[in-house]
Amino acid sequence: MEVRLDTEKCQGHLRCMDIAPDIFDCDDLGYGVVVLSGPVPAEAVERVSRCVSNCPESALTLR
């Protein structure tokens, strides 16, 4: 599975960073970025799924 962040939708709430700081960070302007390259590790899938469902802008997808 891979996580994707739509930078056009992200408003910088950073809930993703609170839930999965090993997967998400913020840029210099305070918007979310995915720091993981490649597939989401099995042990992080549940947390990333929570990030997707908690994003108020629906900027995250998990495939």
Rank of each mutant, 00 (worst) to 15 (best):
D22S: 09
G12W: 12
E2F: 04
R15P: 01
L5D: 13
V34M: 14
M1H: 02
K9L: 06
P21T: 01
S37K: 11
C51G: 05
E57R: 09
A42G: 09
V33F: 01
L62H: 04
A42S: 08
V33Y: 09
I19G: 06
D22E: 00
D28G: 07
D6G: 05
F24G: 02
S58N: 12
C55P: 00
G12N: 10
D25N: 13
A59H: 11
C51K: 05
E8D: 15
C16K: 07
D6M: 07
I23T: 04
S53N: 08
A20P: 03
G38I: 01
E43T: 13
V40T: 00
D22G: 09
D25M: 02
R4Y: 05
C51M: 03
M17Y: 09
R50Y: 08
S53E: 10
D18P: 00
G38E: 00
L14V: 10
G38C: 01
G12I: 08
A20V: 04
V48F: 03
E57V: 14
A59C: 11
V3Y: 01
S37Y: 03
L29N: 11
C51Y: 03
L62A: 03
V48K: 10
P41F: 06
A59N: 15
T61H: 02
D28S: 05
Q11M: 11
F24Q: 02
L60A: 14
L5Q: 10
E8L: 13
D28A: 06
M1A: 10
H13R: 04
S58K: 12
S58R: 12
L62V: 08
H13P: 03
V40A: 03
G38Q: 00
V48C: 09
P56E: 01
V3I: 12
L14G: 05
R15I: 14
C10I: 05
C10R: 09
T61M: 07
V52W: 04
L60H: 10
F24A: 05
A44R: 15
R63S: 14
E8F: 04
V34P: 05
V3A: 05
V35F: 05
E8G: 12
A42D: 14
C16M: 06
G30V: 13
P56Y: 01
D22W: 05
C55F: 01
V33G: 11
Y31S: 14
G32M: 06
C10P: 13
R4A: 13
V3L: 06
D18L: 13
S53Q: 06
S58V: 09
R4P: 05
P21I: 00
L29C: 06
C10H: 10
T7H: 11
N54S: 11
F24W: 03
H13D: 15
R15H: 08
V52P: 00
L14K: 10
K9D: 13
H13M: 11
R4D: 09
V34L: 06
S58Y: 12
Y31H: 12
P39M: 01
V52S: 06
